[in-house]
Write a protein that binds this DNA or RNA. Structure first.
Lengths: 140, 140
DNA sequence: AAAATATTTGCAACATTGTTGCATTTGATA
DNA sequence: TATCAAATGCAACAATGTTGCAAATATTTT
């Protein structure tokens, strides 16, 4: 879906105004193979935006399912594009304790587990923490 | 392991000083069938403790694996007893969107997924969000 | 192309949470 | 009971979450 679209088109297709902040955020996230934190995105962005604007932009983009939020810890949140072409509906995320990077593990799909009687699920958050390939190689 | 121990014994067995704050926190968590937030624990506690003390107490208890921290969202953290009798090493957690409660799903064990070549995992965070049994029944 | 409108932005302000240093108090131990 | 190491409370500050509102901007209508 998003694979061939640019930020403008993505915003249009969700009936969102094409503001430079939103376009910039999408652009930066698209160009990264890793999930990025709010600060990482700000640093890579051209314009300078108010914290509030950022806050609300993310809220909007998450609500529209353009990006998804990955909560690694209560004080570490990263964002990745919700690319419905490459991303399975439910996929796992990997957090590297060494380099603090987060990647979507497209290959690790999540099967809805059997819940106790009477429970129903709408969303699954799956974060695997450990050491990534690069950091392991460095350690050798 | 903890099932038959009281807070004092738990602290002793971990070589931690038995302070009233720590004992209280463990007591409150033990007496609840749900995971509790810092505020929920404070409200159920007798003594009045400084926020800093609370903060450091939780840190200590988590580091000693007496309680475990469940990060539902970046602004919703709950704590549960790390009862090694009933808790499998890796189990899933359930967050109810309606009543905001969190329970450990002992029955839902997590199988270590096959990671991409070169990755290794040390911890898995698995939070299932949805509607719990009670809230579903209420809705009918 | 300009005006009307609806939305977004930036600012100020404040709440909540995370965190540290340090003096005082407390728990464990000799 | 005295000693010592550790925990607590306080002050202070950083980071993040959140709202209201006036000014700026994007989109729609004329």
């Amino acid at each position: 879906m998003f694979a061939t679209m640019n930020p403008k088109e993505i915003l249009n297709s969700h009936n969102l105004k094409r503001t430079s902040c939103r376009e910039g955020i999408i652009e930066v996230i698209m160009s990264s193979d890793k999930a990025l934190s709010e600060n990482e995105i700000r640093d890579r962005l051209f314009g300078n935006y108010d914290r509030t604007t950022f806050y609300r932009s993310f809220k909007t983009l998450v609500e529209s399912s353009i990006v998804h939020k990955i909560v690694v810890d209560n004080n570490l949140v990263k964002y990745a594009l919700d690319n419905q072409v490459t991303h399975k509906n439910e996929h796992a995320h990997f957090y590297c304790n060494e380099c603090n990077s987060v990647v979507c593990l497209e290959s690790v799909t999540i099967e809805k587990p059997a819940l106790p009687e009477g429970f129903s699920s709408s969303e699954i958050d799956f974060v695997i923490k450990g050491t990534c390939k690069l950091c392991k190689e460095k350690a050798e």
